[in-house]
Nucleic acid binder design. Sequence first.
DNA 1: AAAAGATGCAACCGCCGAGTG
DNA 2: CCACTCGGCGGTTGCATCTTT
Length: 354
Amino acid sequence: MVRAPCCEKVGLKKGRWTTEEDEILTKYIMANGEGSWRSLPKNAGLLRCGKSCRLRWINYLRADLKRGNFSVEEESTILKLHASFGSSWSLIASHLPGRTDNEIKNYWNSHLSRKIYTFHGKTTSKGIITLPPRRKRGRTSRWAMKNKNQKGSSSTQQQQQQIHHHLNNEVAVPLPPKPPLETEKYLSTNIILMEEQVDGSSTASTITNDHKHENTTTMCVEGEKEEILNDDIWGPYVEEVINGGELVLNFDDFMDHCWQEASGVWTISDEQRESNINIVVGNEKVDDDMCTNVIMSSGDHDRLHSSSSIASDLDQNLLTWLWEDEDWEKDLQSLGEIHSDKLKAMVDWFLSSS
DNA sequence: AAAAGATGCAACCGCCGAGTG
DNA sequence: CCACTCGGCGGTTGCATCTTT
């Protein structure tokens, strides 16, 4: 059966509401109360669909609405509730007085969803949260382009199907789909974890998923500390060992171009390999365009440290690269304490995926 | 200064379930 | 049970605004 439209749409106005319309609607509802949305426009003298009136009232005109930016607490609440309820925006909104489902949904889509997604190729229940730096407005980001390319290919559905729940209070996040790229197999994949030591030096621990071992390389010494910390790279790199040479990608690039096949073999796109072989592609520092691209020869960690940058305080702050540059401390607190068990989970997952 | 294009958000669309006669 | 209305919801779109080149 074909459903009747909620109201006769011919001749009805669409698009942005004017101040006059807002006033009419507000006055009418103040006088008559909410409800009877179907008949409301006619009674109030509005050339609008009843649903449109309802939406305008609920999302914008209601007196109890809280306008303005979301607080750290609210953001934290959204993250936690989304982990539990998924995209049940109305349910989430019911826990946030003064906020509407639409507002929360928009906030999620424009702010939070891009901050949070897990590693693709992940098959266990453990996951990693990663928060690519928020990009300023401007020219195309990889993230945006990826999303754009996925439009029309039910990307949302894919993400919804891949929502995972995580350890403790961690958020459930949509997984980015596999990039449709040609594959090539490589010998192994390593994660390099950067850690600052008490004496000011830093170490890089290499963890491989094929040999399951760690080794540690001193990365810098006192005096270089400040410069290095200012470089604004946080978190693990992923290193591809290719025929004796190395390809080191930052996490974002790894996310975009690498994936794990069912066999457990890690794969990287030809495109990325050709453009970056033997190059360390560092995280870009978004705010002042500082890039940290570094040429790196095979196994030359001294050269890596001299030009690249390092995350400090591994236990507490490794995951701070997940957050926006300026606000990571606040955001971190808002999520509650992030312990090294997340790091351990990440490493566990990595090792278990081989 | 202009163009390109990303971003944020208000508003729309279509579907669904509850309620009613 | 059926047909239908209504309210509510989540996903999507359109456009003004903003940033970058």
